[in-house]
Design a protein around this nucleic acid. Sequence first.
RNA 1: GGGCCUGUAGUCUAGUGGCUAUGACGCCACCUUUACAUGGUGGAGAUCAAGAGUUCGAAUCUCUUUAGGCCCACCA
Length: 793
Amino acid sequence: MLPREYNPKDIEQKWQKYWEKEQIYAFDSKSDKKPFVIDVPPPYASAGHLHVGHALHYTQFEIIARQKRMLGYNVHFAPCFDDNGLPTEKYVEQKLGISKKDVERSEFRKLCKEESKKVEGEYAEKVFKALGHSYDWKLLYTTISPEAQRISQISFLKLLAQGDCYRAEEPTLWCPYHQTALAQAEIEDIHRNTTLNHILFNTEDSKIEIATTRPELLPACVGIFVHPEDSRYTKLVGKKATVPLFGQKVPIMADEKVEKDFGTGIVMICTFGDKTDIEWWKKYHLPLKVCITNEGKMDKTTGKYEGMTIKEARKAVLADLKAEELLVKQEPLEQEIGTCWRCNTPIEFIVTKQFFIRTLAHKEALIKQARKINWHPDFYRKRFEDWTNNLSWDWCISRQRYYGVPIPVWYCKKCGEMILPDEQDLPLDPLETKPKTSCVCGSTEFIPEEDVFDTWMTSSMSPEIAVRWLEKPEHFEQLFPASLRPQAQDIIRTWAFYTILKAYLHFKSVPWQDIALGTYILDPKGKGMSKSKGNVVWADDLLKNYDVDTFRYWVGTAKWGSDVPFNEKDLVAGRKFLVKLWNASRFTLSHLENYTPKKPGLEPIDKWLLSKLNKVIKQSTENFKHYETSEAKQAAELFFWRDFCDNYLEIVKDRVYNPDKHEEKAIESAKYTLYISLLTTIKLMAPILPHITEEIYQSFFQQHEKTKSIHCSEWPEVKETFEEEEEAGDLLVEILSKVRQFKTEQKVSLKTQIELTLPKEQLEKLAPVLEDLKAVTRATKINEGNYEIKLQD
RNA sequence: GGGCCUGUAGUCUAGUGGCUAUGACGCCACCUUUACAUGGUGGAGAUCAAGAGUUCGAAUCUCUUUAGGCCCACCA
């Protein structure tokens, strides 16, 4: 039997240990049950400790895993970590106070692996296990593991072979801070105030005024454009202009893309200031004149400006222009510029050799694929489609970084030919391994590729990695596509996009049947939480003050796909519910001692409750199916609190406290109803509140139900409903409520005896439950006549 | 500039055509009642952002306006 005090900490620890020992959540690869595969988001283990938003997100779909398991699915729920890539690299550099440049690549990679492992261990214990998450830890994978690297590299080789991956020397999005190429998805626009500078250029016979925000790019100026119908300037077209300070002569051309009304209506094109520069550079076959290095500094072609940063050079160039009276006007300008999403450094366009995966050629196909997937909520599909339609670059997958999956390629020193390894030799690092054969030209000297993959190259294969595509092909056949991808909405353009792309390119398949976008947390004022704003609430701090089920109750109220502000007081409701569940269970179970469940003939009022219960089961089941966790929870909660506690328990007290007054079969009926309704309630709440429901289950139900945990018991099934009894019961409750109101107004105890007079048609309807009404309202007698409640003298 | 989401009591929230608009926190009053005072019962509190339209009937559907949020584009 349950103790009087509800002690969450003891209960949590006891059952978490038990679940682990008994392997309650193990995926059974030999089972013939239908699989349900969840494509879990691998968290960055470098984050140190966990943001309440992550805890919310990870718990939100963990609830789904539990419910599916109870529904009878063989749930494949693999924990994972993303420990490959920039964040880890930067974390290690910061934590150990080193720079990747001071250390050998292999040494640096080793340090990264060691640090990741430490953090992951902590994470697993302090976060996932503490929150009662039901992973099968035997399925753990990390994105830097040999298996994941192998999948990443094989994916690359296959795409290269089928022509969907290529290497090209192109102007590429470049982060001067991280000194690497980036993909379009890694660019974040920020708003900033800048200056528009009007600069004088000489033409053959006149002066023209050009407005630019990037005067430091003058040395890279290769042309000047005006609008073809701009009467002010048409006479200039075909002539040459001289770039101030640097002296190169550049052609003046016309293009419709020029905005006549912006600035002076004359644009200079530099290699490269923005995307239009690239477009025109290609369209008009202009020369390439680079002036910025990979580090974001002025290069040796810029003379006295060499070595200056972009900012310094801008200042210096402007000062020199001013001195020569070539700077005629400066005006403030607001603009949005593309920056690196991790460091917010403005991106540059730098010509480098990179590997790309084709996306532009597959836009339509990808949108079609996305339409085969169920999006929860559906409007996020639109965001995917918009993103896909607006793509203007293929996916650049090579990064000039140290820590990541190496690109498995060598180049022949003699003829430059690309040499690829055999699939069976993967994973490998070309810096550490040599090709097995000589080049077609006969040379045996090779230059290894030093770049690594974009981390999304690996993460985009998470459904394949999770079910061990290459290690267990038979597994893969059965478990791919996955059932569900839960993820955050801010990475639709990366994780969701690339995963859909890869599944399409490799298997002409969707990667999953469903994608569900989780809840996005905001601070109490409705602003996004971030470390830089200092408004982050940490999950481990919260768990010091609240028990896990209380936290999970709050998670259960959050609606998928929408934002929720975090207010600590919302946790109070959860605590109250748990105490209520505890006490109602104590009461119920105290009357079921030595009871063995057996379906008896049911009393009408018991049919009333069971009928309502069946409707709740139906609703909750439906809700869970559509990832409407909060609705499912609310349905169960309302039933429990209102129908079961407030009304039914009060009604049933007469039978359990005064058995002598009642027939044996009425008492059997009551006990059966108590048994079923409490068991069903805790089952409906089990996915959300795994600890308290397990405690209640184990303290009594387990001996009759046999399954070793509530979490592998069967999800309740909808049985019959009883419309007539429901009506009678509802009327009883209505009258009970009026009686309570009457007693409150009279300022008497609810125990006070009364005399009740009810109209004939109500009495007829109430006939099956009249004795229950009499007992619960403490009516000494019930008369027929005009409605009246009277205090007993 | 384009697209998407949201606007319901002091606060958060349910409700996508139909009884006096849901629930929680907070507030007020009463109730020592044998599960629970971390409780129970009852109450006050909302012109459902504004306007127009469709309809017998609108928080709910349509349009316009407005406020907030998000995504994308432009970015000389």
